[in-house]
């Protein structure tokens, strides 16, 4: 692991506080999703990003608005960090017409192409070759945009990880592969299914650099991502950035966590990325108790308003079930 970062990396106080606000927003969004799911308002299987927020925030802070990301089944944090709106996300989770996918995708398919969010993906490793293709499009357009592909360590055991990264490496595409090592593939520990400790070690197989950072340190993630992205924009080809973290919640809402080693989560809670960062900010007098309270209240108000928006939005009309299969050029065969 890299050493904890001692300086502010040239970020202004406002920029440092913006990272803090984003971390809080993702946490508050996820806590509320859990609650709304228990009420039956959030529909379907839902995977929470609690404990892993520093990765999405740190990486996306190093992006430009015109860059792209691909995400996973655990994608709410990526979407928020890339600039998706909490209200339209919440509406999607509620299955409403005003959601990003008009209520046809749900948690595992949130996408906002106008924000460069190329989709959560319900297939583990599904986003990796797509990110490679986005990188290919950028290269063919001779643009200096970049693509981030977020995935978990379990994705690195699937074929598309190998194929997608190898192809990106061969063509030197501007894709940063970001592995969120959260220790679990559903109910299985990573150590049960991998002989290597670090997914980053696998980068050597593709002839690209692999780096491990503390995924619960938002500034460490930001610094590593910033350096990697500068590499990408210079045309030096892809890189694998592994962020060590821990999935504080279950695989999905409702997971009883029988399989988890006792005491383990408690130990990781002491390394909670938000607590660590707020302590760091306070230590440097960037964040005061008063500002902390104000920020928390603002974030909470935004989430309340997102829920109100979702609640007030209609369900999609049933005709929508038959729309968007093809472009308007073709109709779905109904008989």
């Amino acid at each position: 692991m890299t050493q904890p970062i001692q300086d502010s990396l040239g970020l202004t106080g406002d920029q440092l506080l913006e990272l803090y606000r984003q971390l809080l927003t993702i946490r508050a969004f996820e806590e509320r999703v859990k609650y709304e799911s228990s009420l039956g308002n959030v529909l379907g299987p839902t995977h929470l990003y609690i404990g892993e927020e520093a990765i999405a925030v740190g990486v996306c802070a190093a992006l430009r608005p015109d860059d792209y990301i691909t995400s996973t089944h655990r994608g709410h944090g990526h979407a928020l960090a890339k600039g998706c709106r909490p209200d339209r996300m919440m509406a999607e989770l509620f299955g409403r017409e005003t959601g990003y996918c008009r209520g046809k995708g749900g948690s595992q398919h949130i996408a906002d192409f106008s924000a460069g969010m190329l989709g959560a993906n319900g297939i583990v490793a599904g986003g990796i070759p797509i990110a490679t293709g986005a990188g290919l499009a950028i290269q063919l357009k001779q643009s200096d945009q970049v693509v981030i592909s977020f995935f978990g360590e379990s994705a690195s055991n699937r074929g598309p990880f190998h194929e997608g990264i190898n192809l990106a490496a061969v063509w030197r595409l501007p894709v940063l592969f970001v592995c969120e090592f959260n220790h679990f593939g559903q109910y299985t520990y990573a150590r049960q299914v991998m002989r290597v400790e670090n997914v980053a070690d696998r980068a050597a197989a593709y002839g690209i650099p692999g780096l491990v950072v503390d995924g619960n340190d938002v500034l460490a993630v930001y610094q590593a991502a910033r350096e990697a992205i500068a590499r990408l924009r210079a045309g030096d080809g892809p890189m694998l950035l592994e962020c060590k973290t821990y999935r504080l919640e279950g695989h999905n809402i409702g997971d009883e966590l029988y399989y988890r080693t006792p005491g383990e989560a408690e130990a990781w809670r002491l390394k909670d990325p938000i607590d660590r960062y707020s302590a760091w900010l306070k230590d440097r007098e960037v964040l005061s108790e008063a500002l902390e309270a104000v920020t928390q209240a603002r974030v909470q108000a935004e989430i309340d308003s997102a829920v109100a928006f979702a609640q007030a939005s209609p369900f999609p009309p049933v005709e929508a079930a038959l729309q968007d299969v093809f472009s308007a050029d073709y109709a779905v065969r109904l008989s």
């Binding site: 792209y68 691909t70 192409f113 190329l118 989709g119 599904g126 990796i128 070759p129 797509i130 990110a131 490679t132 293709g133 986005a134 990188g135 290919l136 499009a137 950028i138 063919l140 357009k141 693509v147 598309p160 194929e163 997608g164 192809l167």
Partner: peptide, 9 residues
Amino acid sequence: GAAVGAAML
């Protein structure tokens, strides 16, 4: 997969 990603852009 790359074809899908490129088509998205």
